[in-house]
Amino acid sequence: MPQKIILDCDPGHDDAIALMLAHGNPDVELVAVTTVGGNAVLEKTTKNALGVLTIAGITGVPIAAGCAHPLMRQGEDADVHGESGLDGVVLPEPAMELDPRHGVDLIVDTIMEAEPKTITLVPTGPLTNIAMAMRKEPQIIDRVKEVVLMGGGVHVGNWSAVAEFNIKIDPEAAAMVFDAPWEVTMCGLDVTHQALATDEVAERIKALDTPLSEFVLGLFGFFRHAYHNAQGFEFPPVHDPVAVARVIDPSIVGTVRAPIVVETRGDYTLGMTVTELRPAHIPADCHTQAAMTLDADRFWDLVIDAIARLGKDSSNG
């Protein structure tokens, strides 16, 4: 049976690829999509999600807009995604309408209506929606199978010297998610910086020769230029689908069991995901783990296969 996932996202170029992987792989079932303010303001991330679902032919999946702002702080945009949050491509008019529920309610309803331990939460943006869902209906904590998120890092930061964007812009929400007694896998920068959209990857996608593959190449082209200018990468890291890949095949993403806490008060360390790697300080019942290694070839095989499947389906009408 496919693993059922809710993808909570803030598209974002890499969120777009995560959406495609989540729907284009037969081993996962995308049961809901929620959006959050993050890479761009909520209005833009929601518009981008609708456009990606449309161009990829992803229908029949409820999508709802969630929280526009962090729990306690001012929002920030991630400039590497451009003014629209998804620069470099032209989005079609949406082929579906938003679910009338708030994104937090869609998360809660989907989990509460499903059998316990059958839904995996895959947040790829700030964790505001997840924290609010926990607060609104604490029962979801026991009912969720696991949380596999893109965010944080053990040894690396990007929005500060030690903090990653998704965690830093809403550290209070992140602290709630990491502290809750459910299984949490952090796919942070240590592993996502290994998911590089190289020239070889782009050539494989170009060979698919579908409108969707051309769309993906447009995403990669802008993202490569922006990441090179902002952070000096030769090839852009495609962060968010790594979390989806971890759900599809855990052996692709190697993890270490370790306590993880989010710094919410430091002047220089705000949003840091402090990861305890000393063996003597890792309890037997530790419920958090950090991703450290990636089989990049198998990861890209999954992504390209999903783009091929979706591209073929959308081309056939």
Rank of each mutant, 00 (worst) to 15 (best):
L196G: 02
I260P: 02
M176I: 11
I205M: 05
A174I: 10
H13Y: 10
Y268C: 06
E83I: 10
R298G: 00
K145W: 01
Q289N: 15
E164I: 04
L19H: 03
V28S: 05
T110M: 10
E29W: 03
T45G: 08
V177N: 00
V238Y: 07
D109N: 14
K168C: 03
N39C: 14
L21A: 03
Q194P: 02
V148N: 07
A175F: 04
N39V: 12
S251L: 09
E97Q: 15
R135I: 08
V261Y: 08
P26E: 12
P11C: 07
D27E: 13
D295I: 11
T288I: 13
L98H: 07
A95C: 07
V261A: 12
I55S: 01
A174C: 07
I55H: 03
H102F: 09
L127Y: 13
V247F: 12
G254R: 14
H287C: 06
A65T: 02
I304N: 00
L208C: 08
D87M: 05
G85D: 01
R265Y: 12
C9Y: 00
V36E: 10
V122N: 00
M1D: 13
A131V: 06
D313C: 03
L53Y: 04
R309T: 14
K206I: 00
N39D: 13
K145R: 15
P237A: 13
V104G: 04
A18P: 00
C187S: 09
G317K: 10
V262T: 07
I107E: 05
G218T: 02
Y268S: 13
E146M: 13
D105P: 11
A226L: 06
N129P: 11
P181A: 08
D87A: 15
G266W: 12
H281W: 14
V52P: 07
I107N: 03
A202Y: 01
V90N: 08
L189M: 15
L53D: 01
V122G: 06
P279R: 10
C67M: 14
P250R: 12
P62F: 06
I55P: 00
G152C: 09
A290F: 02
K168R: 15
L98R: 06
L86C: 10
T128Y: 02
A180N: 12
K145C: 11
G151E: 14
E172T: 09
P116M: 12
F222M: 05
D79K: 14
M292P: 00
T110A: 07
Q289I: 04
D199I: 11
H23K: 11
T35N: 09
T120H: 09
I141E: 05
L91S: 03
N129E: 08
L294I: 08
D10M: 09
L127S: 00
Q194W: 06
A133P: 08
R204C: 03
W182K: 05
A68F: 04
G85W: 01
K44L: 14
D190M: 09
G57S: 13
R143A: 06
T210L: 07
S213W: 00
V144R: 04
I55G: 01
S314Q: 15
D87C: 07
D199L: 11
L106E: 03
V261Q: 10
E214C: 03
F165V: 04
T275M: 12
A195T: 11
A133K: 04
L19E: 04
A243N: 00
P236Y: 01
G66Y: 11
G317C: 05
H13G: 13
V148G: 00
E214M: 05
